[in-house]
């Protein structure tokens, strides 16, 4: 968590050097997004069904040409759910009555490519699709009452996304982002498999000198 916070402090400092530009080619852009995530599949069924409104994403994207950019994406999402007291089998001929809490933090570090099909058209609203792959650091703590089991893993992650970018003003390289993305994170710990989610993000992008 501390490292993530430090990373975003660095991003904040870099934002002071943001400049406007009207062409993407050769340009380094910073995207900063707030993220709300919805667990899917086994993640939702077995671990956490609550949506997580506690997430951020940041990415540095370099313009290969006007339509394609590639870069590095970092993120953080915190999932938490507390289940009412129930009786769980915890061993041979052993049961435990407990309030069960699951706490999961995912921190994806991804190589990302983004395609903006209308970049040459000067359309005010620019749709995009993106694909990222890399690893997610997954911190998983499961609590029975106040007693926890914890595991930290690096898991393979693929992320596909789509959305729109709207400039603050015409011909500005900076603007708003709005989008959604599907995350597949291969995970296998404590008998739980895969942490897939659908994330909705809103934020800003701006060029860096």
């Amino acid at each position: 968590m501390k490292k993530i916070t430090i990373s975003f402090v660095c991003l904040l400092i870099l934002s002071a050097f943001a400049l406007n530009a009207d062409a993407q080619k050769g340009q380094l852009k910073l995207n900063l997004d707030y993220s709300s995530s919805l667990p899917l599949g086994n993640f939702k069924k077995d671990l956490i069904s609550n949506a997580s409104p506690r997430g951020v994403n940041g990415s540095f994207m370099y313009g290969i040409n006007n339509k394609w950019s590639a870069g590095l994406s970092l993120g953080y999402q915190d999932y938490y759910q507390k289940y009412p007291r129930d009786v769980y089998t915890t061993g041979d001929h052993e049961v435990t009555s407990a309030v069960l809490s699951n706490s999961i933090q995912t921190m994806p570090v991804l190589a990302k490519a983004m395609f903006t099909p209308l970049a040459d058209s000067k359309a005010f609203i620019q749709p995009y699709v993106s694909l990222g792959t890399g690893i997610s650091i997954v911190d998983f703590s499961q609590y029975l009452g106040e007693f926890s089991s914890t595991a930290t893993n690096a898991s393979f992650t693929v992320q596909g996304g789509a959305g729109i970018m709207v400039p603050f003003k015409k011909n500005s390289g900076a603007g708003f982002n709005l989008g959604a993305g599907y995350n597949y994170t291969a995970y296998n710990k404590f008998g739980y498999k895969n942490l897939n989610s659908l994330a909705f993000n809103a934020g800003i992008h701006f060029p860096l000198k």
Binding site: V56, K82, T96, A98, G145
Partner: peptide, 28 residues
């Protein structure tokens, strides 16, 4: 906005802070 994101990033729900004293107990 970046400052707001920083604030949100620091908002991890700490599980132990969400438990009452009765919820902290386990019976095996």
């Amino acid at each position: 906005l970046a400052g707001m994101l920083l604030f949100l990033a620091s908002c991890k729900k700490e599980p132990l802070n969400q438990l009452t004293q009765a919820e902290s107990r386990i019976y095996i």
